[in-house]
Design a protein around this nucleic acid. Structure first.
Length: 110
DNA sequence: GGTGTGACAATGG
DNA sequence: GCCATTGCCACAC
């Protein structure tokens, strides 16, 4: 149950609910929130997640290609990759291996 | 209140 | 099949 005024808050809630060892996409989250085409807003929300005081598993969110597009914004080029590998997710050339299998769709599972 | 921007997505050449 | 362009929506100034 998400009752937040800001769109960002909803993005945080969904992102925090991403299961361990799973990844999701900006478009999927955006679609789940009802915005659909506002996938960019989702990424932007995660950008603001830094400094909230609450850790957001933004490293589990990648673009539709499974590429760690936001790794550079995560505070380091390798940080995001390390975190994903720490959860058992294999990263190949900054891309999620078996992305289709690890893909977590909030619209279906949440 | 209008303009700009952004960690994307989809389409066209 | 890869590169370029457009669309999209929410927030900051």
């Amino acid at each position: 149950m998400i009752e937040k005024d800001g769109f960002f808050e909803r993005v945080y809630e969904v992102t925090k609910k991403i299961p361990y060892g799973r990844v999701s996409t900006y478009g999927a989250i955006a679609k789940y929130l009802g915005t659909g085409g506002s996938a960019r807003v989702v990424g932007w929300a995660l950008n603001s997640s830094s400094g909230l005081g609450v850790f957001i598993p933004a490293h589990r969110v990648v673009n539709r290609n499974g590429i760690l597009s936001g790794k550079k914004h995560f505070g380091g080029s390798l940080i995001m990759k390390q975190l994903l590998e720490n959860e058992g997710i294999r990263i190949k050339d900054d891309k999620v291996v078996d992305f289709k299998k690890l893909f977590w769709n909030p619209r279906l599972e949440l």
